[in-house]
Simulated assay, not measured.
Amino acid sequence: MTMEIRKVPVRRAITWLAEAINLGRANPRAIFGAALLMISTLYGVLLVVAVISTAVSGASSSSSLATKLAAMIPAFLVTVLALPVLMAGLLQVIRAAETGQPARARDLFQILRQPQAKRLAMLGLIHIALGIAGALAVALLAGGSYWDDYLSAVQTAAGGGSLVLPEPEHPQLIFVLQLVFNYISYAIMLLGVPLITFSNAGLGDAVRSSLRASLLNIGANVFGIVVFFAGMLLAALVIGLVGLLIVAVGNLVHPLIGSVLSVGLYLAFGTMLLVVLVGGAYAVWRDTFSTESDTPALTGFEA
């Protein structure tokens, strides 16, 4: 199945960000509640699988770094497989809220009963495969002993020593290669999930269409990435300063209160970032692929 891909002007990236920031205005309880539920679920799954795999492998605090990392592999795999499925659930909550349909935070899990869930999980496998391919390419460029030296340096730091990372060969080429792999990998994830969820695309069609769209609209996409990360860094700076103030005030009462308030602040910040990221992916899919006009374009920013 060949999907029509529209050419999007570079300036459209500003509208994507504006729409993503304004998402909560329709049904904030459902949208932000679903995002918080997604974060909690991913961390819960990661924790449970990590504890089980660590117990099965026999890894302990005295085990080598390689053993500890190997014990974490199942938790990483399960989390990456669950990520696109839960992202699709959040997208459905966002779409329902934006189109005036009833939406609740727990609707996040409705995707698990839908036929797209298997294809979405397979998209996670493709994300893992691209990550492995990128890591192998970097390993080849970095030099034969780089990763052994890197693990040794990390293990030394974990044991209380100073962290002195080795210098890889061809650092500039590695940097460019990582940018390319990351762009392709996240384009497939952020565009492939709504394509499977809303356009009912097959796995192969979703991957091919995502790659074509990421190349056709590379200007708008890269500009959107730059704007998003610039905004995220600025917001993180503000949140960091506010967090220091909250901790200082909370500590005047009790250190535990300061810690709880700080965790709550950063959790809220992470939830908002997730909504903006997934909402941006929804806006990109709609402008690039969808023939619907179910969501009005927004031209300004609201708090």
Rank of each mutant, 00 (worst) to 15 (best):
A187M: 05
I21P: 05
I126F: 06
I246C: 04
Q178I: 07
S209Y: 07
I14Q: 03
F269H: 10
G258C: 04
L83F: 15
S214N: 08
Q110L: 15
F198D: 02
G100W: 00
V227T: 11
E4C: 05
G44M: 13
A50D: 04
A230G: 13
L173R: 04
F109E: 13
V176M: 01
N221I: 14
G219W: 03
T295K: 05
L245A: 15
G58Y: 01
Y43L: 13
Q110C: 07
V154P: 00
L244N: 01
I52E: 02
G134P: 09
A13R: 02
L273Y: 12
G159R: 00
L233N: 02
I126T: 10
R12V: 00
I111C: 00
L265S: 09
G264N: 11
G134E: 02
G202M: 00
R119Q: 13
G144H: 03
V227G: 02
L190M: 15
L237Q: 12
L234G: 03
L273G: 11
S60N: 15
T99N: 04
A283Y: 00
S209I: 08
R119T: 05
L77C: 14
M232K: 14
A35G: 02
Q101S: 06
A236D: 03
L173G: 04
K7H: 07
Q178W: 02
A75S: 15
E98L: 11
V238T: 00
A236E: 01
I188M: 05
R286N: 04
E169T: 10
L90A: 05
F181L: 07
I14S: 02
G280Q: 09
T79C: 06
F109V: 14
V242L: 00
L277T: 15
A55E: 14
L165D: 02
T67E: 10
N22F: 13
K7W: 06
V78T: 10
V49L: 13
V48W: 08
A105T: 12
A230C: 14
L83R: 06
A129H: 10
F181D: 01
T291P: 05
V48I: 15
L86T: 05
A135Y: 15
V227N: 11
L112E: 08
L195Y: 01
S61R: 11
S185H: 09
R208E: 11
L23M: 09
S259Q: 14
A34V: 13
S61T: 14
L179A: 10
G33C: 15
L267G: 04
L267S: 05
A133D: 04
L37K: 09
L108N: 07
L211T: 11
T299D: 06
L46I: 15
G89Y: 08
L274G: 12
V93E: 01
T67C: 09
T291S: 12
I246L: 01
S40W: 09
S57R: 02
M272F: 14
L277R: 15
G144E: 00
L298M: 09
R104T: 01
L277D: 09
A283R: 13
I94S: 08
L69V: 14
L252W: 14
P115V: 11
H127Q: 13
W147H: 03
S145G: 00
H254I: 10
D287R: 06
G279Y: 12
H254E: 12
V263N: 08
V8F: 01
I73V: 15
I184M: 09
E302P: 07
T15G: 09
A281R: 12
I174W: 11
E98K: 10
T41I: 14
G280I: 03
L120F: 14
A157R: 08
G270R: 04
L120V: 02
